[in-house]
């Protein structure tokens, strides 16, 4: 099913022989089967989420593993996220300057930069970068543990793998995404100003004053906090795809790919819903 969903996401649909036979005999049956598989995948995800949630709130708590994951997911993603944020800041600054100058609105450039980076570009770029780095890592690691029976070995030691492996990774992703987003925002704004200051005289103080004028608390907090939902999605999908893997090395590869594809897809879909919600709740 995971392969099916990831295939849909990437547009690559591999048809196994039995599926081709079914397509020949009836056009209705395969679409039914696809729907069933799709619903099954969501059903399994719901059961997995429930098990993880229950394991996460009941003792014993795996603090040591949580701190290890906070470091693995947070600290080790920081350079990549900061670099991506900085690059986007420079590109956005250069592109926006040209467009706004054409429409005689060059004075709005700092505000446009601050608004676009903090509202949308910073959160989504961070989520996609983390989805690529961390999603693939979690998916491959847990899938590899699954196919080599290491997850069974954890269970055999009377340790709940949902608590030790999944809850800690999902919580670490949820906690670290907003902090990484702040870092991406900061680097983006800083490099956006550097790019701007390299072509016209503008102090950082002026840039910040102009950029943040007329903005309130509600302009910045909800877009940053929504990334916690992105982190939850990345952690949940990656752990789920990893822990349900079957089929040796090929299965590990599929789990890593589907973790990235599905978590990126669901992050983008969630962004649509969250942006609408933020606009309604914080007009």
């Amino acid at each position: 099913m995971s392969e099916r969903v990831s295939s849909l996401a990437t547009g690559i649909v591999a048809k196994p022989p039995e599926r081709e036979a079914a397509l020949d005999s009836s056009t209705l049956a395969p679409s039914k089967s696809l729907l069933t598989e799709f619903l099954e995948w969501f059903g399994e995800l719901a059961i997995f989420s429930w098990r993880v949630a229950r394991a996460a709130v009941t003792p014993p708590y795996e603090f040591r593993e949580l701190f290890r994951q906070l470091d693995e997911i947070g600290s080790k993603s920081l350079p990549l996220v900061a670099l991506a944020g900085a690059a986007i800041g420079v590109v956005l600054s250069l592109e926006s300057r040209q467009s706004l100058t054409r429409f005689g609105a060059k004075s709005l450039l700092p505000a446009a930069l601050v608004f676009s980076i903090i509202h949308e570009i910073g959160p989504i770029i961070t989520a996609l970068v983390v989805s690529g780095r961390v999603g693939a890592g979690i998916g491959a690691e847990l899938a590899s543990m699954k196919v080599t029976e290491q997850i069974d070995a954890i269970e055999a030691s009377a340790v709940n793998p949902y608590r030790l492996l999944a809850a800690t990774r999902i919580l670490a992703c949820t906690l670290m995404l907003p902090l990484l987003t702040l870092a991406a925002d900061l680097c983006g704004l800083l490099m956006g100003w550097v790019a701007l200051a390299s072509v016209e005289p503008l102090s950082f103080h002026q840039f910040i004053n102009s950029g943040f004028s007329g903005s309130g608390f509600s302009d910045f907090l909800p877009p940053t906090l929504k990334t916690a939902v992105f982190g939850l999605i990345i952690g949940l999908i990656s752990c789920f795809q990893g822990m349900r893997t079957r089929g040796g090395a090929a299965g590990v590869g599929r789990a890593a790919t589907s973790s990235v594809v599905l978590s990126s897809l669901f992050v983008i879909l969630a962004d649509v819903v969250l942006v609408k919600l933020i606009i309604i709740l914080f007009p």
Binding site: M145, T148, A156, A158
Partner: peptide, 19 residues
């Protein structure tokens, strides 16, 4: 099940050591 497994030891076919 975890409580019951505390009394059980399991040797896996490929050892399943944490790599």
């Amino acid at each position: 099940l975890g409580e019951v497994r505390l009394k059980m030891g399991f040797l896996f076919q490929h050892a399943a050591l944490y790599d």
